[in-house]
Structures are given as C-alpha cells and as structure tokens.
C-alpha cells in the first residue's frame, strides 16, 4: 500500500495545498505499449506535465465526475473514489465545498474516513483556527504551516507504513 499525492481545493476551485510522496517504483515501470494498436501516445509521455497542470487536470476530472454523479443519482449523491489501472483517486467534500483528494495505489481500500479526519483534526485545527492565517487561502497562503504539514506527514505515515520494507 502506498500513497502518491494529496490535494486540497477550496470553494473557489483553486488548489490550495499539494503534497506528493516519493513515487513507488511499481507505478513508474514501463507501460507496455504493444497493446496500443491505435497509435495513442503511450501513458509515459504524460509525465512531462508539472504539478500545477496535474492539479488542474485532477480538478477538472472530479468537477465533471461530481456533476455526472449528481445528474445520474440525484442531488445528494456523491462519488467516493475511482480507479484506473495505475492508481486510485479518493474524494471527500465538506459542506463548505472544500475538496480533499488523495491518490494512492489501486489496492488501497476506502479512504473517506481518513480524508474526513485530515479535515476535522488537522485542517480545522491547524489552518482554520490559526489566527495568523487568512480566512481564504488564495494561492494556498497559510495552509502549508508547520503544524499542518507535520501532522499530515505523521498521520499518513501511520496509515501507510514506510514503503522501504
């Protein structure tokens, strides 16, 4: 089990926090290209994108998925995660429209409670209640403070034991 990255988006659809973990080798292995008969660009080429583009792509994806899910399953329906051959994306949204997203490998189970906990015990305590942090976080100002980062680091470490084993 390993975690790849973690994002927070605010209600203005802006990415206010990003964290990436060292990518496990399994994900980086060469993708077999022989299956692609229609001349598609192999998936490896996508790695040219930077972190900012990644965040935009992820937001676009969840934004559309969220809509689709609501149209199909009614106003109160939410999507929880989706899985591709390479990774699994976990999604959690608060009533204040903060969106918490985590990318992990495909074997990981439901992470909704984990994301909820990151919000309730780390984000609320260390970011929202920090008197020096602004109320809104344009460009992520005030989110990545030491307490929050440290808390997140150790919380994730407690769930995903070190990959070096």
């Amino acid at each position: 089990m390993s975690v790849y990255s973690f994002y927070i988006f605010d209600r203005h659809t802006e990415c206010i926090y990003t964290k990436r973990w060292a990518i496990a080798q399994s994900l980086r292995r060469t993708v077999p290209t022989n299956a692609l008969s229609n001349g598609d660009v192999p998936a490896v080429a996508r790695r040219g994108l930077n972190a900012e583009d990644d965040a935009k792509l992820i937001f676009g994806t969840i934004f559309s998925l969220r809509r689709m899910v609501r149209q199909l399953g009614g106003e109160d329906d939410h999507f929880l995660s989706y899985r591709t051959g390479e990774y699994k994306l976990h999604y959690f949204e608060t009533p204040t429209q903060l969106k918490f997203i985590m990318l992990t490998d495909t074997r990981v189970g439901n992470m909704r409670t984990v994301l909820h906990q990151i919000w309730a015990t780390l984000y609320v305590e260390y970011v929202v209640k920090s008197p020096l942090a602004p109320t809104e976080h344009p460009k992520g100002v005030g989110v990545a403070n030491e307490l929050f980062e440290g808390g997140l680091e150790s919380f994730i470490a407690s769930i995903f034991p070190s990959p070096t084993q």
């Binding site: 109160d76 009533p95 204040t96 919000w119 984000y123 609320v124 929202v128 209640k129 109320t135």
Partner: peptide
Amino acid sequence: YNMGLRLIEDFLAKSNTGQ
C-alpha cells in the same frame, strides 16, 4: 462575520451535520 467564516468549519467538523 469574520468569526463565522471560520467557526462554520469547526462546527461542521465537530457536529458532523451534512448539507
């Protein structure tokens, strides 16, 4: 108003009320 903007987050986290 400025208190409310932050308080709501704490409130939701503690009370677990949804939409």
